[in-house]
Design a protein around this nucleic acid. Structure first.
Length: 813
RNA sequence: GCCGAAGUGGCGGAAUUGGCAGACGCGCUGGACUCAAAAUCCAGUGGGCUUCGGCCCGUGUGGGUUCGAUUCCCACCUUCGGCACCA
């Protein structure tokens, strides 16, 4: 403590050791009745990291943001829960094991040790007593239990269907993990395969996921919009068409029941299960089979890029509104995955149907017309859905405004039992099984006699066995662990085989935030009373890339667990802040692009405080920011200046005078507090403290210098806790992280004089130092007769005067 | 195509409720200290004109509202993000 140079490498580890020894940021769980139970408590959480080999800049930004919020709240009197853990199952560790040899477990645990050390080097104020990792049996035991609870409730189920298959990773993917027809993880083009898989019935919660967004007042609108788009609620009607001369009913979904009279043909997806039956034994059978076969070879991207094509089945359906037969076609522009896999085609009012009708010379009948003007539906579909549209050629409904027609036709269909109003969603059930090794085993067995049997709770966890070959072969590597797979049926005791697929890692991370509240519970996933005490998370912080995936799954889980009576709340994250990405050369940092900036090297060069300060000083935290190598140098230089300024100020006596520096210090407290607390912005507080430090240096002899220096140290602490702690101690105080956040004196924000801006015709012409006591008339007089303004006004007539108290006077001539 | 966000100096950005555009930082220029360099400190730094008093222009483009617009309204351009053969 004799060193007068700012040496982060010496002081940062020293303070980190103090925090660890004093368990400074650990918050024990209170029990009901204890005084702590009644204290204000808050839960600040950032998305947990996947333990890759190195911490990256995104982590630095994420966890520094959380750190500022946590420190700020702690110093404002809250008990702050701020845990950390690892999303440790997943493909990268498994792929590394394949490439380099070794076990995914060993690789993961090595990475965790490394990343934990790096987090500690950053000085983040984390409750390390609550650390969890999703790959440990102590954790995944409960993941398995929750799976069983959902299974029991009917929210987990198995079905065979056409699924997304990544040929590279050799596993199925959830809909959410397919981006532009490619695997989100590796970029390989996704294939469709019909497979029997496990699902969570997230579609049961589609309506709740939309409606309960109301509880999410502090979520970015952008994220809510993305989730809304993803859920894709559509209101319309289901209409049943009967195949002429048969008993076969084909329901379709339409958002435009008002166009029903304009349906001139009918289209089924090639994958529709009734296609074969419809054409069996007919002359068209062979052509239809050929078309269906060809469609199967085309990827969804190819399907979309080619011109629309299809094939006639020779069969017709009856349009229920007018009894007219219309031909059934098979075409791959109709998707089996959406709606019923069949559509009524209204070429006059749908671009796709129009294109198809033109291609095959099918009739186009206009049934919707604009209130004014003419449209020619033969050349172009009229797809407006305006309230001003009128129905035409629609029997008894002709002449009705289109919105009214929608309702009337829906009612008529319902009355005639030919259909009903219906809401459908784009959202699919969440496919949760994966044909890979490094994940949580699904706790069920298959028995010849009893079928699918859940593993009894008492036998959990189903441990993930050690295997030696992780190479994906289209089935889980677990299938090769014969001794593990072979088991007995919990129900009948006979021979049975274990499920060999593992759970999607998004299942692991859909409940980790709950476990943090009670991380060492060995008899239950959590104690509900404790969870309800801490949760929901008051402030969640993470990357926008999880806007749909993790954030929607976690919302679903919370609602389902609430319905199971395991939780007392419906939404996991009350407030959400999505940080922008750190870019380098305009792109996301990645090894393949070779533009990665390693935080570790920067800490070595400049210290953690400078890195922390820089990442938040770069710009608004919710926006993407381009990495600048000179940035850390700048914040490091500032810390050096702060260091010298404070050491100089220590020599000075405290003063009770109200000086310009004292005022400036109070103004800075007000600014920083408002920015962090109300505005939730993190770059401008740093600028404000820099200004304060500059101000001290401008007039080091001001008797307020010591107070101003102490204030600067105290305000910068959430950002740069090590240097702040060191300087605070040198200023003769103890334990800044426990000190109450500084308060400002309202009266100090006021000044005796202010700079009056004098405008003539809206242009600034003069600035005058004026007493705040001056009345409006006095201000106008002062403005008019200031020499510069008087010259401009000379010979002109003053037409109007605008006075903004304590700001400006505008003279209009 | 639909929905959303954003365009401000050489660069990152600030301006919170319609009231001084460019805080703070980077970079650059000049100076001090030094044998020299680094570090540090001081001064300057939107553009144009200037008789050195100032003047004019300036927040993507064009209009509008207003005494006054980076801020509000309309149209357009550009960039980014989401969704998209979704019936």
């Amino acid at each position: 403590m004799t060193n007068d140079l700012y040496e982060p490498h010496e002081l940062e580890p020293r303070w980190q050791a103090v925090w660890a020894a004093e368990r400074a940021f650990e918050v024990p769980n209170p029990s009901p009745g204890e005084p702590e139970w009644e204290e204000r408590s808050t839960y600040v959480l950032e998305m947990l990291p996947y333990p890759s080999a190195e911490l990256h800049m995104g982590h630095v930004k994420n966890y520094t943001l959380g750190d500022v919020v946590a420190h700020f709240r702690r110093r404002n009197g809250w008990r702050v829960l701020r845990p950390m853990g690892y999303d440790a199952f997943g493909l990268p560790a498994e792929n590394a094991a394949i490439k380099e040899g070794g076990q995914p477990r060993a690789i993961t645990e090595r990475n965790i040790a490394r990343i934990r050390e790096q987090m500690q080097r950053m000085g983040w104020a984390i409750d390390w007593g609550r650390e969890i990792s999703t790959h440990t049996p102590e954790y995944y035991r409960w993941t398995q239990l929750l799976f069983l609870k959902l299974l029991e409730r009917g929210l987990a189920y198995r079905k065979e269907s056409l699924q997304n298959w990544c040929p590279n990773d050799q596993t199925v993917l959830a809909n959410e993990q397919v981006v532009d027809g490619a695997c989100e993880r590796c970029g390989a083009e996704v294939e469709k395969r019909s497979l029997e898989q496990w699902f969570f019935r997230i579609t049961d919660y589609a309506e709740a996921l939309l409606d309960e967004m109301e509880l999410l007042e502090h979520w970015p609108e952008r994220v809510l919009t993305m989730q809304r788009n993803w859920i894709g609620r559509s209101e319309g009607a289901e209409v049943v068409f009967r195949v002429e001369g048969t008993e076969i009913d084909l329901p379709v979904f339409t958002t435009r029941p008002d166009t029903l009279f304009g349906a001139t043909f009918f289209v089924m997806a090639p994958e529709h299960p009734l296609v074969a039956e419809l054409v069996a034994g007919r002359p068209e059978e062979e052509a239809v089979r050929a078309y269906v076969k060809q469609a199967q070879t085309r990827s969804s991207i190819e399907r979309e890029e080619k011109a629309k094509d299809g094939v006639f089945t020779g069969q017709s359906v009856i349009n229920p509104v007018n009894g007219e037969p219309i031909p059934i076609w098979i075409a791959d522009y109709v998707l089996m995955e959406y709606g019923t896999g069949a559509i009524m085609a209204v070429p006059a009012h749908d671009e796709r149907d129009h294109a198809f009708a033109r291609q095959y010379g099918l009739p186009i009948v206009q049934v919707i017309a604009p209130r004014e003007g003419e449209v020619d539906v033969q050349t172009e579909a009229y797809v407006s859905s305006s309230a001003d549209d009128i129905m035409a050629n629609s029997g008894e409904f002709t002449g009705l405004p289109s919105p009214e027609g929608k309702k009337k036709i829906s009612d008529w269909l319902a009355g005639s039992k030919l259909g009903e109003a219906k809401v459908i969603y784009r959202l699919r059930d969440w496919l949760i099984s994966r044909q890979r090794y490094w994940g949580c085993p699904i706790p069920v067995v298959y028995c010849e006699k009893c079928g699918v049997v859940p593993v009894p709770e008492a036998e959990l966890p189903v441990l993930l066995p050690e295997v030696s070959d992780f190479l994906p072969k289209g089935r889980s590597p677990l299938a090769a662990a014969e001794g593990w797979v072979a088991t007995t049926c919990p129900s009948c005791g006979g021979d049975a085989r274990r499920e060999t697929d593992t759970l999607d890692t998004f299942v692991d991370s859909s409940w980790y935030f709950i476990r943090y509240c009670d991380p060492h519970n060995s008899t239950a996933p959590w104690n509900r009373e404790l969870v309800d005490h801490w949760m929901p998370v008051d402030q969640y912080i993470g990357g926008i890339e999880h806007a749909i995936l993790h954030l929607m799954y976690a919302r679903f889980f919370t609602k389902a667990l609430n319905d199971l009576g395991l939780l007392g709340f419906r939404e996991p994250f009350a407030r959400l802040f999505t940080q922008g990405m750190i870019l380098a050369r305009g792109a996301k940092m990645s090894k393949s692009k070779g533009n990665v900036v390693a935080p570790d090297e920067l800490i070595t060069r400049f210290g953690a405080d400078a890195v922390r300060l820089n990442i938040l000083f770069m710009g608004p935290a919710d926006q993407d920011a381009e990495w600048q190598d000179t940035g850390v140098e700048g914040t490091s230089r500032f810390l050096g200046r702060l260091w010298r300024t404070v050491l100089e100020a220590i020599e000075k006596p405290a003063s009770s005078d109200v000086t310009p520096l004292i005022r400036k210090a109070h103004q800075t407290i007000a600014k920083v507090t408002d920015d962090i607390d109300r505005r939730f912005v993190f770059n401008t507080p740093i600028a404000a403290v820099m200004e304060l430090v500059n101000e001290i240096n401008r007039d080091p002899d001001d008797p307020g210098a010591r107070f101003a220096a102490e204030t600067a140290v105290s305000l910068i602490q959430p950002y740069a806790p090590h240097i702040a702690e060191e300087l605070w101690q040198r200023l003769g105080h103890e334990r800044l992280w426990q000190q109450t956040w500084p308060a400002y004196d309202e009266s100090m924000l006021e000044r005796e004089t202010f700079e009056l801006v004098v405008q003539v015709n809206g242009k600034v012409r003069d600035r005058l130092e004026v007493s705040v006591e001056a009345g409006e008339e006095e201000l106008v007089e002062l403005a008019r007769f200031s020499p510069r303004v008087a010259a401009l006004l000379e010979g002109k007539e003053l037409r109007k005067t605008i006075v903004v108290p304590r700001k400006l006077v505008n003279l209009v001539v």
